[in-house]
Design a protein around this nucleic acid. Structure first.
Lengths: 138, 138
DNA sequence: TCCTACGATAGACAATGTCTAAGTCAAGTA
DNA sequence: TACTTGACTTAGACATTGTCTATCGTAGGA
């Protein structure tokens, strides 16, 4: 995670204990926490951190392109630190588990010009839904 | 829209003024209203209809498979009456306009077995994002 | 026409996210 | 090191979206 902290510092980010803690919480593969979960884990490390700061910091990380927002369910947004490798999500419809996946081909090419209605398309968001092995076994 | 009302009546749906109004509001192509927008339009036709009834009725229509829930932004869910033809969505990142689109090929096939982590996948949700012609011109 | 179970209602409540005003502090400067 | 300043943090009010409950009303069958 010092990678991320270094990058942020290099971009002129003012380093505070709160920001460091939020960045540390968002470390790892297949991490997809809600803002509230991030807050809860941040509080473990820094009890006086406020909800507003977590929201602010997450918003800044998203603006900087260091973290992605994903909405796999209709409840809270989730934050995905795996922003530097394009990927999609695979969600278990029962337990809500989320995995990052990497499809073949460019998903943008699936949409023919005749279906683009003159839009300039820049991005696709793809979420696969199914049942994970654990839930299938249960 | 009498089609929808007929189908619903055929399924034993008890017909009330409120339900009829909600079904009428959800008529047409490229209709993607939030629950609140549905409520506002329903109130125009039937001033005493309550918010809870709109939510209940939308939920029932979704359960019956007559209407789809889509979440193209992170704000409110939107309701799409075009439930009988599989389609995806194209969203303008500036004004939020939404169009239904129909891509070529089966999006499920883009995910190789090696990336399925043992999940049994049943569904894919695809949202294209870009800028619509109106916003591009402005 | 009358009954009754299902539907509708108002409004409280819950979850998530945003905003504000005031206090605090990181980092540059001398 | 001490000073300064504007960016950062805070608590809590507020906003939005959605859900639940207790009560009232009514569609449709007898």
């Amino acid at each position: 995670m010092s990678d991320l902290l270094e990058r942020l510092r290099g971009r002129g980010w003012r380093m505070t204990a709160q920001r460091r803690v939020v960045a540390e919480v968002l470390d790892g593969e297949h991490v997809h926490l809600t803002a509230d979960e991030v807050h809860a884990r941040a509080v473990d490390k820094l009890p006086e951190i406020s909800r507003a700061t977590v929201y602010n910091t997450l918003g800044e990380l998203v603006s900087l392109g260091e973290v992605l927002e994903v909405s796999t369910d209709r409840r809270a947004k989730r934050y995905d630190p795996n922003a530097h490798r394009p990927h999609q999500h695979l969600v278990c419809a029962r337990c809500g588990a989320i995995r990052d996946v990497h499809p073949t081909g460019n998903p943008l090419s699936a949409l023919p010009d005749s279906e683009r209605f003159g839009f300039t398309i820049s991005d696709v968001e793809v979420t696969y839904r199914g049942v994970c092995p654990n839930c299938a076994a249960a």
